[in-house]
Design a protein around this nucleic acid. Structure first.
Length: 111
DNA sequence: ACCATGACGTTTC
DNA sequence: CGAAACGCCATGG
Protein backbone atom coordinates (compact mmCIF):
# COMPACT_ATOMS: atom_id res chain seq x y z
CA UNK A 1 0.00 0.00 0.00
CA UNK A 2 2.84 2.37 0.86
CA UNK A 3 4.59 1.99 -2.43
CA UNK A 4 1.37 2.41 -4.39
CA UNK A 5 0.28 5.12 -2.03
CA UNK A 6 3.25 7.06 -3.28
CA UNK A 7 1.68 7.14 -6.71
CA UNK A 8 -1.64 8.28 -5.29
CA UNK A 9 0.11 10.70 -3.00
CA UNK A 10 1.87 12.26 -5.94
CA UNK A 11 -1.41 12.63 -7.76
CA UNK A 12 -2.93 14.42 -4.80
CA UNK A 13 0.18 16.54 -4.45
CA UNK A 14 0.02 17.70 -8.04
CA UNK A 15 -3.73 18.25 -7.82
CA UNK A 16 -3.23 20.54 -4.85
CA UNK A 17 -0.63 22.50 -6.81
CA UNK A 18 -3.11 23.40 -9.51
CA UNK A 19 -3.33 27.21 -9.53
CA UNK A 20 -6.58 28.99 -8.89
CA UNK A 21 -8.78 29.22 -11.94
CA UNK A 22 -6.77 26.59 -13.78
CA UNK A 23 -7.46 22.96 -14.64
CA UNK A 24 -5.47 19.97 -15.81
CA UNK A 25 -6.09 16.56 -17.27
CA UNK A 26 -5.56 13.08 -15.85
CA UNK A 27 -3.18 12.27 -18.65
CA UNK A 28 -1.12 15.38 -17.92
CA UNK A 29 -0.72 14.35 -14.29
CA UNK A 30 0.04 10.78 -15.26
CA UNK A 31 2.67 11.97 -17.69
CA UNK A 32 4.17 14.21 -15.04
CA UNK A 33 4.40 11.22 -12.71
CA UNK A 34 6.07 9.20 -15.44
CA UNK A 35 3.02 7.02 -16.01
CA UNK A 36 1.61 8.55 -19.15
CA UNK A 37 -0.35 5.38 -19.81
CA UNK A 38 -1.79 5.33 -16.34
CA UNK A 39 -4.25 8.17 -16.75
CA UNK A 40 -6.93 5.81 -15.49
CA UNK A 41 -4.97 5.33 -12.32
CA UNK A 42 -5.03 9.08 -11.78
CA UNK A 43 -8.80 9.00 -11.98
CA UNK A 44 -8.74 6.12 -9.57
CA UNK A 45 -6.62 8.11 -7.19
CA UNK A 46 -9.15 10.90 -7.36
CA UNK A 47 -11.85 8.40 -6.52
CA UNK A 48 -9.88 7.60 -3.38
CA UNK A 49 -9.10 11.28 -2.83
CA UNK A 50 -11.92 11.41 -0.35
CA UNK A 51 -9.87 8.99 1.73
CA UNK A 52 -7.16 11.59 2.04
CA UNK A 53 -6.99 13.69 5.11
CA UNK A 54 -6.24 16.83 3.13
CA UNK A 55 -8.66 18.18 0.61
CA UNK A 56 -7.92 17.53 -3.02
CA UNK A 57 -9.25 19.97 -5.64
CA UNK A 58 -10.43 17.14 -7.83
CA UNK A 59 -12.84 19.56 -9.44
CA UNK A 60 -9.81 21.14 -11.14
CA UNK A 61 -8.98 17.83 -12.77
CA UNK A 62 -10.85 16.99 -15.93
CA UNK A 63 -10.27 14.79 -18.93
CA UNK A 64 -8.24 15.99 -21.88
CA UNK A 65 -11.38 17.14 -23.64
CA UNK A 66 -12.03 19.55 -20.80
CA UNK A 67 -15.15 17.55 -20.05
CA UNK A 68 -16.30 17.18 -16.45
CA UNK A 69 -16.51 13.44 -16.65
CA UNK A 70 -16.19 12.98 -12.90
CA UNK A 71 -18.78 15.53 -11.90
CA UNK A 72 -21.13 12.69 -10.99
CA UNK A 73 -18.77 11.75 -8.22
CA UNK A 74 -19.34 15.05 -6.47
CA UNK A 75 -22.19 15.79 -4.16
CA UNK A 76 -24.53 17.53 -6.54
CA UNK A 77 -24.82 17.05 -10.24
CA UNK A 78 -23.35 20.47 -10.97
CA UNK A 79 -21.19 21.10 -7.92
CA UNK A 80 -18.00 20.55 -9.87
CA UNK A 81 -19.09 22.99 -12.53
CA UNK A 82 -20.13 25.50 -9.90
CA UNK A 83 -16.71 25.36 -8.26
CA UNK A 84 -14.90 25.85 -11.55
CA UNK A 85 -17.17 28.64 -12.67
CA UNK A 86 -16.57 30.26 -9.31
CA UNK A 87 -12.89 30.33 -10.20
CA UNK A 88 -13.61 32.06 -13.48
CA UNK A 89 -13.70 28.97 -15.66
CA UNK A 90 -16.39 29.07 -18.30
CA UNK A 91 -18.23 25.79 -18.71
CA UNK A 92 -20.91 24.95 -21.22
CA UNK A 93 -22.66 21.62 -21.29
CA UNK A 94 -20.15 20.17 -18.80
CA UNK A 95 -17.36 21.21 -21.14
CA UNK A 96 -14.69 23.79 -20.28
CA UNK A 97 -14.46 26.70 -22.71
CA UNK A 98 -11.12 28.30 -23.58
CA UNK A 99 -9.47 25.13 -22.31
CA UNK A 100 -6.14 26.20 -23.74
CA UNK A 101 -6.28 29.34 -21.60
CA UNK A 102 -7.23 27.68 -18.30
CA UNK A 103 -5.29 24.48 -18.91
CA UNK A 104 -2.36 23.97 -16.56
CA UNK A 105 0.36 21.54 -17.58
CA UNK A 106 2.32 20.25 -14.54
CA UNK A 107 5.10 18.84 -16.69
CA UNK A 108 5.59 22.23 -18.28
CA UNK A 109 4.63 24.60 -15.50
CA UNK A 110 5.38 22.65 -12.35
CA UNK A 111 8.30 20.77 -13.78
C1' DA B 1 -2.98 -16.54 -10.82
C1' DC B 2 -7.34 -15.03 -13.29
C1' DC B 3 -11.26 -12.06 -14.07
C1' DA B 4 -13.73 -7.71 -13.62
C1' DT B 5 -13.80 -2.71 -13.07
C1' DG B 6 -12.52 2.28 -13.74
C1' DA B 7 -13.23 10.33 -12.60
C1' DC B 8 -8.64 8.12 -19.50
C1' DG B 9 -6.67 8.44 -24.11
C1' DT B 10 -6.08 7.34 -28.82
C1' DT B 11 -7.40 5.09 -33.01
C1' DT B 12 -10.78 3.23 -36.08
C1' DC B 13 -15.31 2.61 -38.36
C1' DC C 1 -18.64 14.54 -37.11
C1' DG C 2 -20.22 10.88 -33.72
C1' DA C 3 -19.99 6.46 -31.55
C1' DA C 4 -17.55 2.25 -30.53
C1' DA C 5 -13.48 -0.60 -29.68
C1' DC C 6 -8.91 -1.25 -28.07
C1' DG C 7 -5.00 -0.33 -25.21
C1' DC C 8 -2.89 0.61 -20.91
C1' DC C 9 -2.10 0.09 -15.91
C1' DA C 10 -3.44 -0.56 -10.95
C1' DT C 11 -6.66 -2.38 -7.39
C1' DG C 12 -9.93 -5.68 -5.55
C1' DG C 13 -12.41 -10.04 -5.30
Amino acid sequence: MNASANFFEKVYDVARKIPFGRVTSYGAIATYLGAARSARMVGWAMNNSHHQKEEVPAHRVVNKQGLLTGKHHFEGTNLMQQLLENEGVVIVNNQIQNLETVFWNPTKELK
